[in-house]
Amino acid sequence: MMEQVQKGEITSVKTEYPRIRLMKEMLQRLLENKLAVVGGVFTILLIFLALFPGVVATHSHTEQDYSAVLVPPSAAHWFGTDELGRDLFSRVIYGATTSLKAGLISVGIALGIGLPIGMLSGYFRGVWDEFLIMRITDAMLSFPPLVLALTLVAVFGAGLENAMIAIGLVLTPSFMRLIRGEVLAHREKEYVEAARASGLPSWRILFIHILPNTIAPIIVQATLAIAAAIITEASLSYLGLGTQPPTPSWGSMLSTGQGYLEQAPWLGLFPGLFIFITVLSINLFGDGIRDMFDSKLK
C-alpha cells in the first residue's frame, strides 16, 4: 500500500516531459519486460477465448455422451471427456467466459463502490472519513477474503451472480483505502491548490484534475484484483457455491476432478492448469504495468 501511495511522483514526471515522449518511453519499458509481454499475450488470448468460446471449442460444452464417459485425451477429445461424457476441452474454453466475467464484474463492482467513496472520503476528510468509512474498511479487511466471500454467498444464496457481488464487496475496502490515500496525497499539491484558487467546484477538481493523476495505481490494483477474483470465484465454485451446473467453471471442474485424480487425472489437470496460467499471466501483466508507470525503474 505504502509503495502505491508514493506514486504521487508520476505527476512531477508528467510536467517535466512532453506527453508523447513519456508514453513512448513507458511503452518501451513495458515491452522490455519479457515476462509482462508473455503475461499480456496470454491475457489477450484469454479475453479472446472468453468473448468467442464457440470459435475455439471443438464440441458442445453441455452435450453428454454416455458411451464416452471418462475417455482419456485423444485426437477426438483433446483434453479427454468428463464424468458425464462431455468434451473437456470445450468445457475449459467455455469456462474462460465464466472466469473472466467473474473477474471483471466483481472488480467493476469494487471500483464502482470504492472509487467514489474513497475519493470523497480522501478529499473532504472529516469525521465520517476517519471514524466511519475507515473503521468499516478496517473491520472488513480484518476478515480473510475467502471467509468473508463465503459468508456473503451463504446470505445471498449460491450462484455466479451472487458470487460476483460477494467478491466485489470483499474487494471494495482495499480499493477504497488505496484511492483515499492517493487523493489525500494529491489534495495538498500545488495544481489542486491552483484549481481551488481559480474557483473550480469540488467535483471538477476531484474528477477532472485529481482522478487522472491517481489512475495508475488504481489500474495496477485492478489487474491484481481481477486475478484474485478469478481465484475466489474458482474457490467458491469448488465449494459448490459459485457457478451452478451445467455452466462450466474452472473451479467446479477442478472440484470434480479432485475425486478422479487416480482414475482420470485429466479432469483436474486441465482446469487447474488454466487457472494457474490465467492468474499468473494477469499478475505478470499487472506487474509490468506497475513498472511501466514507475519512472524510477530504468
Partner: peptide, 15 residues
C-alpha cells in the same frame, strides 16, 4: 445437495 453424484444426476436430467 452439493454432492458430486447428486449434481451429476441433476445434470443428466437437465440434458
Amino acid at each position: 445437495k452439493p454432492v458430486e453424484t447428486d449434481k451429476q444426476m441433476a445434470e443428466m436430467v437437465q440434458s
